[in-house]
Design a protein around this nucleic acid. Structure first.
Lengths: 323, 323
DNA sequence: GACACATGGGAGAGCGCTCTCCGAAACCTT
DNA sequence: AAGGTTTCGGAGAGCGCTCTCCCATGTGTC
């Protein structure tokens, strides 16, 4: 029997007589044969793997990666789509500049057929590098100017407006914001959307402190906020973890939530649901977004979509106990 | 100029005249050439990548993976060792049975040169499958009987004894345990070590409740413990997250920590340091263990160690506020 | 029964590298 | 100056697959 026939059976192309198929399969099972992926890739120019790239420019990367439920939700959204198409998901982390370079090199050499990139800091050069290298790439969040690739994003401004309007509706007139680092456009949109919505109601000065998306940073930001403005009656945090931190500081100070200060988070992660005091938050359908993003990439890979497109998702307000 | 010369320059083997080297490098830089990894692997039988496999048999995998700081620490330990050797780290997650099979297949085909496996549940069949497939494999935690591979582990019994002796020393005579699922040998060692240490001091009946390593499960376990034994004056939890959960429940009940109930955790993760009440805990040098484990695998891969060995690390007690 | 046509297996090229062998040239040594 | 020795570039095989041709056989049509 020729190699060609075996190849046809293994890959299920063209017709092969059933008895021959059985013989081949039996032999494969008996010998524990596994086709050599390198040889296969060499001719098909496909690896059968797609990279899920988590990249950060700041420090203490893995600590954040493995404590923010956000990334788990992204992974949860990406995996099923890939599994269903029998594509191997491969997680790549770029925790430093050399790591980023090594990673780009790996992908340029054909380590994976495409990349789903989730940048933690949105001034990340990685998407640009990958696109420039000609690798099919899609992005969680808008790409920066000049980088052409598929992406999904949340209407962050609309989410922030939902939060602002809710706080206004429940009678809060002295709200503050715990925002994210300036580098993140996402964070800027959340902040701008919030202040804009309040400005249209005549509230012009909204105190702002910045955190780094962690619970601890939220706690400290709340402390700074109260130090400067002891009279705030509401806080909008750019993610749930920081909202939790804020709640913790308020509790430590003996302030009631939402009695004295109402708190609204962002994301609707498990951190919001499982909090001691369940968080009112802006829901971001992360899993759904990640799944759509992966679909965009797969469409580009199999040629059914000439070039990956983009999609903007709508947020929703989830009212729980904290506001 | 022949392909052979280019290959020699790119791989830095043998002497090539400096001017020719420069010419090659210039051409590489100019054309943006990246060698095809598949073709290279085909002849070298190396991919230049090592898999870091996170595997679980239970459900809601990613939620746990991306909320327990433990895994971040493992990654932190593995990455630098791999980066230093210019080996590409590739994270693979096996969140379900089909995923596990797909993953084994991927590695059998030559997706990576070796695997560092971190099983979440210790009855995981994955290490056995990989070893049987002939893939160089090392394991965080002892392999089950019949599986021969390199591993590192903590002396969990000793850690539990440290906790027991500390609680005894500070005068606690009615301690309880929040243990992990029975399936985990690690957890069994922690439980057995704790009860054995107390038994030698005459405390024979130690109440036990089980959690699933999450903060929420620890909180509920504490509630069950108090319901059955309102007089417990100390709790030893099998990890920091559950210890935190226990603290939270105690706070909700108005019980003082450590005044009414002393709490000892396990791991010394950021969850212990950053807790509202910093946790007394048993330190597990996870990063160091992960780095050693990776070294074991690399030694096996480059042939400097005929077969990967094993190493047991010693725990240490870290006394903070909770006990 | 002769022809066209579908069906299914084999031969063999070639994917893009690495690496061994070989030979040409440069450099010593006596 | 003649031989030996070292240095370094090129030729070419071959890694293990896939896939296009091609041919043998089976099937249908008039």
């Amino acid at each position: 029997m020729s190699r060609a026939t075996v190849s046809r059976v293994v890959n299920g192309v063209r017709n092969v007589a059933p008895e021959i198929q059985d013989a081949v399969r039996a032999a494969v099972a008996r010998t524990g044969y596994a086709p050599n992926q390198a040889a296969r890739s060499l001719v098909t120019r496909r690896t059968g793997a797609v990279a899920l790239v988590l990249s950060a420019t700041g420090g203490s990367f893995t600590a954040r990666l493995f404590s923010d439920p956000f990334f788990g939700r992204v992974v949860d959204g990406v995996l099923p789509v890939l599994r269903e198409r029998a594509v191997q998901p491969v997680l790549l982390v770029a925790e430093s500049e050399p790591a980023r370079l090594q990673l780009v090199d790996y992908l340029r050499r054909g380590g994976a057929d495409g990349a789903v990139v989730v940048p933690l800091d949105e001034d990340d050069p990685l998407p640009g590098l990958l696109v420039a290298a000609g690798l099919p790439t899609v992005l969680f969040g808008r790409p920066r100017a000049g980088v052409r690739c598929g992406w999904v994003d949340l209407d962050n401004g609309a989410g922030a407006r939902l939060a602002a309007e809710h706080l206004w509706a429940v009678g809060r007139r002295r709200p503050a914001v715990i925002a994210a680092p300036v580098s993140a456009p996402t964070a800027r949109e959340r902040l701008d959307g919030f202040t804009a919505a309040l400005a249209s109601r005549g509230v012009t000065a909204v105190p702002v402190e910045r955190g780094r998306f962690t619970e601890e940073s939220g706690r400290h930001a709340m402390a700074r906020l109260l130090a400067r403005h002891p009279d705030v009656d509401a806080v909008f945090a750019a993610n749930d973890l920081m909202a939790r931190g804020a709640c913790r500081h308020l509790a430590e100070r003996g302030l009631a939530v939402p009695g004295d200060v109402a708190v609204v988070g962002f994301d609707d992660s498990v951190a919001a649901r499982d909090a001691a005091l369940p968080l009112t938050t802006v829901r971001q359908p992360v899993e759904e977004m990640a799944a759509a993003l992966t679909g965009l990439l797969l469409g580009q890979l199999d040629g059914s979509a000439p070039r990956a497109g983009s999609k903007v998702f709508e947020p929703a307000l989830v009212v729980r106990a904290s506001a």
